[in-house]
Simulated assay, not measured.
Amino acid sequence: MEKLVQKKKTGGLFDTLKTVFWAIVIALLVRTFAFEPFNIPSGSMIPTLLVGDYLFVSKFSYGYSKHSMPFSLPVIPGRVFETEPERGDVVVFKLPSDTTQDYIKRVIGLPGDTVQVTDGRLYINNKLVERERIEDYILTDGTGRSAAVPQYLETLPNGKVHRILELFGDQGPSDNTEAFTVPEGHYFMMGDNRDNSADSRAFPSRFRFVPIENLVGRAEFLFYSKDSSQPVYDLGSIRFDRLFQGVN
């Protein structure tokens, strides 16, 4: 009897370990090839994404590269099953100057485009991008102080409409740039919080153009959001109105 009980205990432990192993394998496969969670640590994409947002990124949207793999393991040469991003997509990518860092921005310039900002206005291929002033955005900092910030609806050439902020009106530090021509296989990225975003306009820049192999995936939807300046146990700081919202 004692031996039978011991065998049963051993078998139960083995089954548990096997279940845990396969659960980890499935989770890694989903994370690598389907969806990966990310959180937003900075305000460069306000008002579209807020600090404390948690979202899922579709890994299959643009195909796969080594940066699709855990730790960017170099097991995929170049990019396979490649699909090009659309203008206006919100994309997670590896910083070209430091591929250990993930950035999230909006695709503004496609390969071959000329992109320029003059007096705060965006030009793509020498054509002024339409924007419309809407209600001010109430921006709150970590101390609880609030300020009204000019907000616009910007319409990209393909009809994609999204909101942007102009903290300093049209005279911010990146509101006047040279004309940049996007190389083949690369993309020009900008944050929606135009005067508070380190992106393809910045000088000196940590990156100018993002190669397609650095794209991790497209931001799809929020699954959680909380004011990160508040304590973890403060349930009142959960932004319930943002849960399960798509990323525009």
Score class of each variant (00 low, 15 high):
56 F>A: 03
57 V>T: 10
58 S>E: 09
59 K>R: 15
60 F>Q: 14
65 S>K: 13
65 S>R: 10
66 K>A: 14
68 S>I: 11
69 M>K: 14
69 M>W: 08
70 P>A: 06
70 P>V: 09
72 S>K: 01
73 L>F: 05
76 I>V: 12
77 P>T: 13
83 T>H: 14
84 E>F: 01
84 E>G: 01
85 P>L: 02
86 E>C: 05
87 R>V: 01
89 D>C: 05
90 V>G: 05
91 V>D: 08
93 F>E: 10
95 L>V: 12
96 P>G: 02
97 S>H: 03
99 T>Q: 11
100 T>W: 01
101 Q>W: 07
102 D>G: 02
103 Y>F: 14
104 I>R: 01
106 R>N: 03
107 V>H: 02
107 V>S: 03
108 I>Y: 00
109 G>H: 07
109 G>C: 08
111 P>R: 00
111 P>V: 08
115 V>H: 02
117 V>P: 04
126 N>Y: 06
127 K>N: 11
127 K>L: 11
129 V>M: 02
130 E>K: 15
132 E>K: 15
132 E>Q: 13
135 E>D: 14
137 Y>A: 09
138 I>K: 07
139 L>F: 12
139 L>R: 12
140 T>P: 00
140 T>D: 01
140 T>A: 04
141 D>I: 13
142 G>S: 12
142 G>I: 02
142 G>C: 02
143 T>L: 15
144 G>L: 09
149 V>N: 03
150 P>D: 11
150 P>E: 04
152 Y>C: 05
152 Y>I: 00
153 L>K: 15
153 L>F: 03
156 L>A: 09
158 N>F: 09
158 N>D: 07
159 G>A: 10
166 E>M: 01
169 G>Q: 04
169 G>D: 07
